[in-house]
Computed example of a mutant assay.
Amino acid sequence: MAESTTQRRPLTGWDKPELDLSNAQWQSGSNGLGDVQIAFVEGFVAMRNSGRPESPSLIFTPAEWGAFVSGAREGDFDLT
């Protein structure tokens, strides 16, 4: 079998863009009662701690965000 000539980068999970979040429209994840806020910026989803908005934000691709939301709806994160 011939070797592939395509060079692949390792999947590190950190290959996210540096987004300018200074003008992001942050929305609370739970009607203003929770600690999580999200913003849709340049085709990505940013998530931050509303109690510490200066701390780094997590950046998700649409596919990652969709998987998270589906898992939450299906109870994957419920405490037992």
Rank of each mutant, 00 (worst) to 15 (best):
V36F: 06
G34M: 00
Q25W: 01
V45E: 15
D78E: 15
R8Q: 13
F40V: 09
G71Y: 07
S70V: 04
S28A: 14
F68Q: 11
A2L: 12
G43A: 12
D78K: 05
D35M: 02
Q7W: 04
G34H: 01
L21H: 07
R48D: 11
M47C: 14
T5I: 09
I38P: 00
P56M: 03
G29K: 04
I59K: 03
F40C: 03
R9H: 10
D35F: 03
A46R: 04
S70Q: 15
L19V: 07
E54Y: 04
R52Q: 13
N31I: 05
S28Y: 08
S55R: 03
R8I: 05
A46W: 07
F60E: 14
G43H: 09
T5Y: 08
G43D: 15
G29N: 13
V41C: 06
W26H: 02
W14M: 09
K16L: 09
S55G: 02
T6Q: 13
G32A: 11
G66R: 10
E64N: 08
F77M: 01
L11A: 13
L58A: 14
I38V: 13
R73Y: 01
E3F: 06
A67P: 00
D20C: 07
E42A: 15
E64Y: 08
S4N: 07
D76C: 02
T61C: 06
G13A: 14
P53G: 02
L11H: 13
T61P: 00
D20R: 05
P53N: 04
M1S: 14
L33W: 11
F60G: 06
G43R: 05
E3G: 02
E3D: 14
A63G: 05
S4E: 13
E64C: 04
R52T: 06
A2R: 12
L19I: 11
Q25D: 14
G75D: 09
V36P: 00
D20F: 06
E54I: 01
D35W: 01
E18F: 03
D35L: 02
M1L: 11
G66L: 08
A39P: 00
F40L: 09
S4W: 01
R48W: 08
A39H: 06
N23Y: 02
A39R: 04
D15N: 11
W14A: 10
T61R: 01
T5A: 12
M1E: 15
S55E: 15
W65I: 02
F44G: 02
D35P: 00
R8S: 10
F60S: 08
R8K: 10
L33D: 15
G66C: 04
I59W: 09
T6E: 15
F60W: 12
T6P: 00
F60H: 12
W65R: 01
F77C: 02
E42H: 08
T12C: 07
G75Q: 06
E42T: 07
V69D: 10
E3C: 01
T5R: 07
I59V: 14
I38E: 06
G66K: 11
S70R: 12
S22T: 15
A2G: 07
F68L: 15
P56L: 05
A72H: 10
L21E: 07
E74D: 15
D15Q: 13
L79S: 13
V45Q: 12
M47W: 05
S50F: 03
V36I: 14
V41H: 09
L79R: 11
F68W: 13
N31M: 08
